[in-house]
Structure formats: structure tokens, C-alpha cells
Design a binder for these strands. Structure first.
Length: 701
DNA sequence: TTAGGGTTAG
């Protein structure tokens, strides 16, 4: 008998019944940061008692953790959360016509050529083709062949019903698959309900297909709904259905729900397979949750499951995303030692990580082994190697690979390749070459540049102060990829404004911004207007940020501060107002540090205007601390960073000049490159001389 | 596609 829905429904079994105020496994403290695959067994140990307390209404499960899963005795009560036996695929037998007739070879083509709307012709063609009831094999052949013709699949099903054929679940399942391929959710939902109401009885495959169809049609709520329906219909999901629904939880970021479902399955004796582990691995990896991934590894060890290539790929990607290149490397070497051959995706994952974390030696090692071991290659991997060279500053190697691709018959450069090369040339300020690739070579090869190509070029041209060329590149982007114009490109336009020489140039960029983002244009007009007050700016800025992706929010704020700092005409208080807003929205966390021996401000990752605002803000906070009679350290430090190339040295040079021009008593630190220090007495006296500090310094010193 | 589930690039 099916268990009551209230105890099994995933929507109720998760958060509503078991609110989790704490994570399911403990996070390591910041002092224990050494990455090791061996030291985390305690996580699962600590998870175990918690899981048992959560799972009171599941069948008793008193075996040791490392015993093999066991539900093999059919006299024991069947687990009611997950069926441990996978649904058996068996051909239907009820239509009593075991011998397949040889189908007219032209029948299929005839059926496909009939217009979808001509139901009469479709039916009469079928009736004519079969002088006696068709065999199940014939029907299955036709349904499989009509996979890419969903409307015809439905018509065939209707003809079978009208012909009083005994309908089998498998026929419906095949039609559902055809509809899933065509992403026709409403039809799928209708057909599945028809099965529930009138038969044939939906089985595990029906529900798995419906759930994965909801996933593919991005109707995630429907996937969860049908998982509930499955239990209420008395069909117990097996491991395939479990993986399908876990995948849906993963996409929705419902980590707790996924883990609780997983634990319930485990408590019922389920031994998850590679697919389930790769779904969980992706879930944890996307969340940057390394403890989750390590817990998963422990689980696999306990169950004596050696990860396959897909699980390794998932974990390597996940640890790369979580900022743990050493663990990713350990996993890669482990799989090679175990004889699990890396595939294209594995190599893509590990080389991406080595590029991102500047692991040149490791990257070269992999490239050498790729040649020796004849590891596989594909287009994405080829482009990833190119990206890696660019990330590692190996520009001449990147150019060599690019030229090889142009000569190649197999791995021709695509728009991704060009995007990498354009970015590389823009980074090294070779805007002419980037321009040539975008406007000449790509069209010659029939490649349509995407927005990232334009964004790289506009950013570079803007930094070089080539405003007319920025406008020309933007106009081209508006013409070719108008729907792709995004916040990142808007940011580059904003940043160009700070480099405008005159009002005419500024108006030209403003006109671009108006076309790209009317919302941003409105905010700029408000910032310009002295009579617009802080609260109005705040609301307009909030609207802009809330629709922008997270990674663009801080650059947006930086660029707006730069514009208000360096363009004449903006009210003088705007930069500090915007910096204050940036703080309110959490864009500038962790800039200031207070230790007993030293207070400091880190300006290294800010734009010039934002750095100036942050420095002024910090100096004021020091003055406030003095006025509040807080204990002060003997020394104060400003981190400005140091730049080796033209672009990276702009901020440190500016800040050095700014500190010097204001007469602030900061001098270059000898023991820490890229920072300036001041003694307490000198700084307080200067703060008082500038009117920033109102109390008398002699009282304090 | 051969009745159902998994992993790659700015």
C-alpha cells in the first residue's frame, strides 16, 4: 500500500516538516583550510545521527554504514520511498499477434508526408496498410520512427484507440518521449492525466519521462508536482526517477530538499549509482560547496563505488569552481592512476583550472601528456587550451595555436576562438589587431561576432580614449547583436565617459548609453541634476543593480563614481554618495581592516574614483574613531597595489600622486610593496590641519 | 530515437 502522501510528498518531507536551521554538514573553521581528501570522514559521521533523527518515519535501517545494500528478500516489506529494483523493460504481449508482418517500406514515408492536420487521410492510410490488427512490434516500430513527428505520434495513438486496440503503457511512453523532444509540455501533461484517469496505468518509465520532460520544458514546479502524483498513484520511484527529481532539485538550488530525499533513499537501502552521484556532484559544485563534494566522495568510498569519468569530471569542475585547484589536481591524478581515462571534458575542466589559477607547470605537464597518451580532442578543448594560454600570459603560444587553427581542416577557429583572441589583443592594448579580427577576419569566415567580442573591443578603445571608435563599434553591435547588449557592455561605455576629452565626446557616449540602457541613462541624468536628492538616487540605483548580474554590480558602481569624479558638471558630493550606496548594497565589503598594531584600507581592486572615495571615507572613519576616543594603533596603511603593465599601473600611480598632492603623511612602505604607511601622530595632525578631525590632537597624543 | 536519469568554454 502506498504510504500517506503527507509523509512522503517531497514538498512536505523537506523544509516544511524538517526546518533546517543549520547546514547538514559542518563547515570547516577558517583555521583548518588545508585541502585534503583524507581528513573529512567526520562529515558523514556527523551527518549520520542527524539523518536518523530526520528519518523517523522511514523503514528501520540498523545496518552498519559500510555494509552492502541489501534489500533482496521479497518477503520483507517493500521500501516505500524508493523501489530498489529497477523497473523491468518488457515488451507487451496482450495484443496476441506475436508475428510481425512485414510493413510496407513506403508506409512510414507516406505517413510522414501527410499534413499534420489531415487526420482522415492519416487514419485511412493506416487502416489500408493493416488488413488485420497490427502486431505490437509494428506499432513500436512506427512509434519509434515517428519520434521526431510528435503530432503524428499522437494521431497514431488516437487511431489505435479508435481501432479498439488494447492499449499498452509502452505506446503512451513512446508518445510522451516524442512530445518531450518537441518540448510540448501541455500535451505531455494532458496525456499523462489521461493515463491516470482512463488507463493504461502509468508506470515508472511514464513518470520518469514526464518528470524529465518537465525539466526539459523548464516547468520545474510541474516536475515536483508529478513526483508527488507518482506516490499518490501508488507507483514507487526507482533510482532513475530519483536521479531525475534530484536533478530538478539541483537546478532549483534546493540543496536541502535534495539531501533529505537522498538520505531517505539511503535509509531505505538504496545504493546510488554513478548518475545519482554526478547529479549530486553538480549540485554541490554549482553551489561552490566543497564539503558537500567531499561528503559525496566519502559516500562512494563507503559503498565501494569507483567514480567513473563523468563523476570525476563533475567533481573536478566543482572543486575548480570552489577555488580548490589542488583538490582538482589530486582528483585528476587519482583517476589516471585508477585507469579511468580522461575524456575531452576532463581535460577541458583541468586546463581551465590551471589557466585560471596560473598553474603554468601543471598546464604544460597536461599538454605533454595529451600528446604522449593520445588523449581525445574536441573543439571546446581546443578553444580551452587557447584560453588557458591567454590566461597564463603565453601570448605568442596562443597566437601560434590560432594560426594552426586557421590552417587546420579539423579544428577551424569559431566565434569562441575569435572572442579569446580579441580579448587577448585588447588586454595587450593591440586594439588595431582586435578591430581587424572583429570587423574583417570574422566576416570573411562567415562568423557573427557576439556581444563579448564587442565588449572587449569597446573596453579597450575606451581606455585608449578613442571615443569615436567606441561609438562606431557600439553602433555595429546595435546593428548586429541588439538583443545581446548587456550590463557589461554598458559598464564599458560608462567607463569610457571618464576618458572623454570634451562635452561633444561625452554627449556621443551618452547617446550610446541611452540606446543601450534607458534606465542607466535616466540615472546619469539624475546624478547630473543638483536638485535630485539622495533617496531618489538610491531608488534609481537599486532598480539598476537589482536587474544586473551580481558580477557587474560593483563595476557599475565604480564606473558611476569615476564619471562623477572626473567629468566636470556633476555635483561634488555625488562620488561619496555613490560610494555610500555601494556600501549599503554590500559592494565594498572588507576594504577596511583594524588590528591592534595597524589599521588599513585596501584600494587595490577599485577604480580610480572609487579608490579616492574609499580613501576619503576611511580617513573620515579614523577621525570619527578619534572623536569617539577609541584605542588607536601606532600605524596606518593604504594598499594601492603596484602595476607592471600600462593598465595595471594606472591606479597605483594615481593614488601615489593623490596622497602626495594632499600632503598626507603617507610614505612608501619598504617592507610591503604596493602600500603606503603613516605614523599615528603624523596622521592625526594632518587630519586636524585638513579640518577632517575637529578635536585637539595634543589631548590625545 | 529505438520505453526512463548524469558531466565541458568568456
Amino acid at each position: 500500500m502506498a504510504p500517506p502522501l503527507s509523509t512522503l510528498s517531497p514538498s512536505t518531507m523537506a523544509v516544511s516538516h524538517f526546518p533546517l536551521s543549520k547546514p547538514l554538514y559542518p563547515k570547516p573553521t577558517s583555521s583548518t583550510s588545508s585541502p585534503s581528501l583524507q581528513c573529512h570522514s567526520s562529515i558523514s559521521e556527523q551527518l549520520r545521527p542527524l539523518s536518523l533523527s530526520l528519518l523517523k518515519d522511514t523503514p528501520a535501517h540498523d545496518e552498519p554504514a559500510n555494509s552492502k545494500p541489501t534489500w533482496v528478500n521479497p518477503t520483507k516489506p517493500k521500501p516505500n520511498v524508493i523501489s530498489l529494483v529497477r523497473h523491468r523493460k518488457a515488451k507487451p504481449t496482450s495484443n496476441g499477434n506475436p508475428q510481425s508482418i512485414s510493413l510496407n517500406p513506403t508506409l512510414l514515408q507516406t505517413l510522414i508526408s501527410i499534413p499534420d492536420s489531415d487526420k482522415y487521410l492519416f487514419f485511412s492510410t493506416l487502416t489500408e496498410a493493416f488488413s488485420f490488427p497490427p502486431s505490437d512490434d509494428d506499432i513500436l516500430f512506427l512509434l519509434n520512427s515517428l519520434y521526431r513527428h510528435p503530432k503524428k505520434s499522437i494521431l497514431l495513438l488516437e487511431w489505435l484507440k479508435e481501432s479498439s486496440f488494447v492499449m499498452e503503457t509502452i505506446f503512451y511512453n513512446l508518445v510522451l518521449k516524442s512530445l518531450r523532444n518537441a518540448r510540448q509540455w501541455d500535451q505531455i501533461d494532458r496525456l499523462a492525466h489521461e493515463m491516470l484517469d482512463h488507463g493504461p496505468q502509468p508506470d515508472n518509465i511514464t513518470f520518469s519521462t514526464v518528470i524529465s520532460a518537465a525539466h526539459k520544458c523548464r516547468r520545474f514546479e510541474k516536475a515536483i508536482e508529478w513526483f508527488d502524483v507518482m506516490y499518490s498513484a501508488g507507483v514507487i520511484p526507482d533510482e532513475v526517477t530519483f536521479s531525475s527529481i534530484l536533478k530538478v532539485y539541483a537546478i532549483l538550488g534546493k540543496k536541502e530538499e535534495a539531501l533529505i530525499l537522498y538520505e531517505r533513499g539511503r535509509a531505505a537501502g538504496w545504493k546510488p549509482d554513478h548518475v545519482a552521484f554526478s547529479v549530486l556532484g553538480k549540485l554541490f559544485g554549482d553551489a561552490g560547496d566543497q564539503d558537500g563534494m567531499l561528503y559525496m566522495r566519502d559516500e562512494m568510498k563507503r559503498l565501494n563505488i569507483v567514480p567513473n569519468v563523468v563523476v570525476y569530471n563533475t567533481l573536478i569542475n566543482g572543486f575548480g569552481r570552489a577555488g580548490r585547484p589542488n583538490i582538482a589536481k589530486e582528483l585528476f591524478e587519482e583517476m589516471c592512476q585508477l585507469g579511468v581515462n580522461p575524456d575531452e571534458r576532463t581535460l577541458t575542466a583541468i586546463l581551465k583550472i590551471y589557466g585560471k589559477y596560473k598553474r603554468t607547470r601543471d598546464a604544460m605537464d597536461i599538454c605533454a601528456r595529451m600528446k604522449e597518451s593520445r588523449w581525445p580532442m574536441d573543439q571546446i578543448l581546443y578553444n580551452t587550451i587557447l584560453t588557458m594560454c591567454a590566461d597564463l600570459g603565453m601570448d605568442s603560444e596562443a597566437e601560434k595555436i590560432f594560426e594552426e587553427m586557421k590552417q587546420s581542416h579539423k579544428w577551424l577557429p569559431d566565434k569562441w576562438t575569435y572572442s579569446v583572441m580579441i580579448k587577448l589583443y585588447c588586454r595587450t592594448s593591440k586594439s588595431e589587431r582586435a578591430w581587424q579580427l572583429l570587423f574583417e577576419e570574422m566576416p570573411q569566415r562567415g562568423l557573427q561576432p557576439d556581444v563579448t567580442c564587442y565588449t572587449s573591443l569597446i573596453d579597450c578603445l575606451g581606455k585608449e580614449g578613442r571615443v569615436d571608435d567606441v561609438v562606431a563599434a557600439f553602433e555595429s553591435a546595435m546593428e548586429t547583436v541588439p538583443s545581446q547588449i548587456d550590463d557589461q557592455l554598458c559598464c564599458c561605455l560608462l567607463s569610457t565617459m571618464a576618458h572623454c576629452k570634451d562635452e561633444m565626446q561625452m554627449k556621443a557616449i551618452l547617446a550610446c548609453i541611452e540606446k543601450a540602457s534607458p534606465m542607466l541613462h535616466r540615472l546619469i541624468c539624475m546624478l547630473w541634476n543638483e536638485s535630485v536628492e539622495f533617496d531618489e538616487i538610491k531608488e534609481s540605483f537599486r532598480k539598476l543593480l537589482s536587474k544586473a548580474p551580481i558580477y557587474v554590480r560593483r563595476p557599475y558602481c565604480n564606473c558611476l563614481i569615476d564619471m562623477c569624479t572626473f567629468r566636470p558638471g556633476f555635483p561634488l558630493h555625488r562620488p561619496r554618495e555613490l560610494f555610500h550606496l555601494g556600501n549599503i548594497y554590500g559592494l565594498y565589503q572588507g576594504l577596511q581592516t583594524r588590528r591592534l598594531s595597524e589599521w588599513s584600507v585596501d584600494l587595490r581592486r577599485l577604480s580610480i574614483g572609487a579608490a579616492r572615495a574609499a580613501l576619503d571615507d576611511w580617513l573620515e572613519s579614523v577621525a570619527e574613531a578619534v572623536e569617539e576616543r577609541e584605542g588607536l594603533p601606532p600605524q596606518f596603511r593604504v594598499f594601492t597595489g603596484y602595476g607592471l603593465d600600462r593598465f595595471k599601473s594606472v591606479l597605483p600611480s594615481y593614488l601615489e600622486r593623490y596622497l602626495s598632492d594632499t600632503g598626507a603623511p603617507f610614505h612608501k612602505s619598504e617592507e610591503m610593496t604596493g602600500s603606503f604607511v603613516a605614523e599615528k601622530a603624523d596622521l592625526l595632525q594632518w587630519l586636524q590641519s585638513q579640518g577632517i578631525l575637529s578635536v585637539g590632537v595634543s589631548e590625545i597624543l
